[in-house]
Write a protein that binds this DNA or RNA. Structure first.
Length: 428
RNA sequence: GGUGGGGUUCCCGAGUGGUCAAAGGGAUCAGACUGUAAAUCUGACGGCUCAGCCUUCGGAGGUUCAAAUCCUCCCCCCACCA
């Protein structure tokens, strides 16, 4: 089975250029394919996960993935899918971000022995000279066609308009593709559906300059069943960096997904067998929760490793009660089977505090703000007034309550805001 | 460069002297209902030493008992024209 079929079956494919020829090419070659990543932040987030998983599938099927960090294009900003001008980054931040991105990609893709490459387009873009670029590359582009591209059209109609720098983004991305095709024999570019225009421009450029046939694959924009772009929570974007977004929260993000998304997400974000995933379709109602737990476990496993996945699972059990993963469900998953019951909650976010300062001294309100569960004291006040604040499972009744001895559970205080946000305070 | 229209609390967007911490919607948060889901309903949604006080309406001044609202200067954005 070709990668393309795999990707199609798992829901990765939105559009493909030259399907027939691409199938043949993939069947007869160890192909090299690339996806560009923006170095706008030091961490990737789940929004990029589709791309990352696609590269991983490529590698698993014997091809060579290339992650291209847009160190050069980051100095400009892609207008695709954006409604406003992007901030221009300094070289320093880009370098930092690049390092972060590499670290994360390494969890998904094996970069050893040239099995995959991580490149930076700054290497060739920053050397470009204007006149030669116009002469050799610019002449292949028709402005008439460019302004018809969806990514530019929306910006042309918007109030903010489109700057000339951004307008050139397409040329640069096409140029990237051309360079990669020459230097690394990379003839496939993948990307989100908003990248279609840029990818096609690259394919054209390659044909015109080298006469070779290149290919493009785009992925659908992944939205949640409720129609929101994926990956936003009360804590902001769901980052892949464990420093920014803890594995426990990452796990929770997946458990909390919409019922209607479970199957789709299992296909996209785990490597579990399709036939097994399809059985989940028949699950209904609360039965679906086990599938969500496996989804969360597997996703955490891939992004953060086995140890963190197990910790997150344990923590969730401690917080929300025992789970029982049946033997047969998604048999390919390495999740611990059978009944998991509460043991220790070591992976719940926790902080250290000194007992003298807390007991009978610290107002409950401060406890919630200092642990970050509430943004401000007003926020904490509201939480308490609305009955969403708990200490060791007991609802906080009064605003001026102090943290007393009775709220201790051993040397720990477990506090909760609402149903899902927990924090543990360890006293010393 | 000219002319016109704008910049309001996370976002959209009302508000043209006091009744404005600022309508409405979205997002978000809490509660009820549930399955750590969705939908629905209820409440909250600048901060604080919270029935009171303090800081916000592009920026800086000014008029006034009183300004998001009026005046002056400045900054930024958009549209059309050149």
């Amino acid at each position: 089975m070709s990668v393309l079929t795999v990707l199609k079956e798992r829901g990765f494919v939105d559009a493909v250029t030259h399907t027939q020829e691409l199938e043949e090419y993939l069947a007869n070659n160890k192909a090299t394919c690339y996806i560009g990543f923006d170095p706008t932040a030091s961490s990737l987030h789940v929004g990029s996960l589709v791309c990352i998983m696609a590269l991983a599938h490529m590698q698993r099927n014997g091809h060579r993935p290339v992650g291209l960090v847009g160190g050069g294009t980051g100095l400009i900003g892609d207008p695709s899918g954006k409604t406003e001008l992007r901030k221009v980054l300094t070289q320093e931040t880009i370098d930092e971000n690049k390092a972060g991105i590499r670290k994360q990609l390494e969890r998904f893709i094996d970069f050893s022995n040239g099995k995959a490459l991580l490149l930076d387009n700054a290497k060739w873009l920053t050397k470009l000279e204007y006149i030669p670029f116009l002469r050799d590359i610019g002449r292949h582009f028709s402005v008439n066609r460019m302004i018809k591209a969806e990514s530019y059209k929306s910006r042309m109609d918007s109030e903010d308009g489109l700057t000339f720098i951004e307008f050139n983004y397409m040329l640069l991305q096409a140029y990237d593709f051309m360079v990669l095709s020459k230097e690394h024999d990379c003839l496939i570019q993948m990307g989100g559906s908003d990248q279609w225009g840029n990818i096609v421009a690259g394919i054209d450029l390659i044909r015109r300059t080298t006469g070779r046939q290149a290919f493009g694959i785009t992925f659908p924009l992944i939205t949640t069943a409720s129609g929101i772009k994926m990956g936003k929570t009360h804590k902001g974007a769901v980052w892949l960096d464990p420093e920014r977004f803890s594995p426990y929260d990452y796990y929770q993000f997946w458990v909390n997904c919409d019922d209607a998304d479970v199957v789709r997400f299992l296909k996209l974000f785990t490597f579990l067998d399709l036939s097994q995933i399809n059985e989940v379709e028949f699950l209904e109602g609360a039965g679906l929760n086990n599938a969500k737990i496996i989804l969360a476990y597997e996703a955490t496993l891939i992004a953060h490793g086995k140890e963190e996945a197990e910790k997150a699972l344990k923590a969730a059990v401690a917080m929300f009660g025992s789970v029982d993963i049946p033997e047969g469900l998604l048999a390919g998953s390495s999740i611990p089977r059978g009944t998991q019951s509460a043991s220790d909650a070591e992976s719940v976010p926790s902080s250290l505090m000194s007992a003298d300062q807390v007991i009978d001294r610290l107002p409950v309100i401060d406890l919630f703000t200092e642990t970050g569960l509430c943004r401000s004291k007003s926020d904490a006040r509201r939480l308490i007034q609305q009955g969403g604040a708990y200490i060791n499972g007991n609802r906080v009744e009064s605003l001026d309550q102090m943290v007393g001895k009775e709220s201790l559970d051993g040397a720990e205080i477990l506090i909760r805001a609402g149903k899902k946000k927990h924090h543990k305070i360890i006293l010393e």
